[in-house]
Design a protein around this nucleic acid. Structure first.
Lengths: 118, 118
DNA sequence: TATATATTCAACCATATGGATGAATATATT
DNA sequence: AATATATTCATCCATATGGTTGAATATATA
């Protein structure tokens, strides 16, 4: 696989493998753009930790940030998760191709056995 | 979200967020069931590390193991990744619903402005 | 200008992770 | 019975991660 895509995949998967970050993302997708303090109110965690999580999501391109004065508006950019779906689908298609091939082989074997069994 | 599913999601995502483990999984999906030493030959890493990675994949239910004497046959079980697709799709549908609602609101605002502009 | 607010940065800590190596276990083979 | 093979377990190490707190920065408000 393309090494660039592979790294992007790693970054994206690591980012969403944390439950707090998944929750942040979901919140942003549900409620729309929001500022950091606003987001943080939903969690027991310190604001600083939330800010750190946002940074991780940002470097995975899962969110974008618009700075208005001292306020940062955070918006989900869920398109960046496409790479995950792509990987899942490619894996699934490889899987199905192999199962099909296997089925064909078994069919062939069966016929062969029938021949020799005549 | 259901806490059980959420934990499963975390385990699964953490498992596939490592490039070596994704590669192992892909190899198994492509080539079919294989034993540990066989798998390890494809990598520069020590056999022990591969064995450890396999254990991680196993506890995420991404592979299954059949023990035949001293040999362990490892097989990919990619269905367990369904939880990821489910999550991605649910997120996407929330996203689309919000965008639709937003579009309706904007449409309403537009009409409203037209009215007041008469 | 002084103060309050929004946010990040820096340092610290405990625990997790990914790798290595060497020993242990279980099973085959001679 | 002795040896070889397949695999995991235990330990160790360096680095990453997720959290905390306190300081710094930037902007708004009184």
């Amino acid at each position: 696989m393309d090494e660039y895509i592979n790294k992007q995949l790693t970054t994206t998967l690591k980012a969403i493998s944390d439950p707090t970050r998944r929750s942040l993302l979901t919140k942003l997708v549900q409620q729309g753009p929001m500022r950091v303090t606003q987001l943080a109110t939903y969690y027991e965690m310190s604001l600083n930790s939330i800010s750190k999580h946002i940074k991780v999501l940002e470097s995975a391109d899962l969110i974008s940030r618009k700075t208005l004065g001292r306020v940062h508006i955070i918006e989900a950019t869920p398109n960046s998760m496409q790479c995950i779906e792509n990987w899942l689908h490619s894996l699934r298609s490889i899987w199905e191709i192999r199962l099909d091939t296997l089925a064909e082989i078994m069919e062939y074997e069966k016929e062969n056995n029938n021949e020799s069994g005549k």
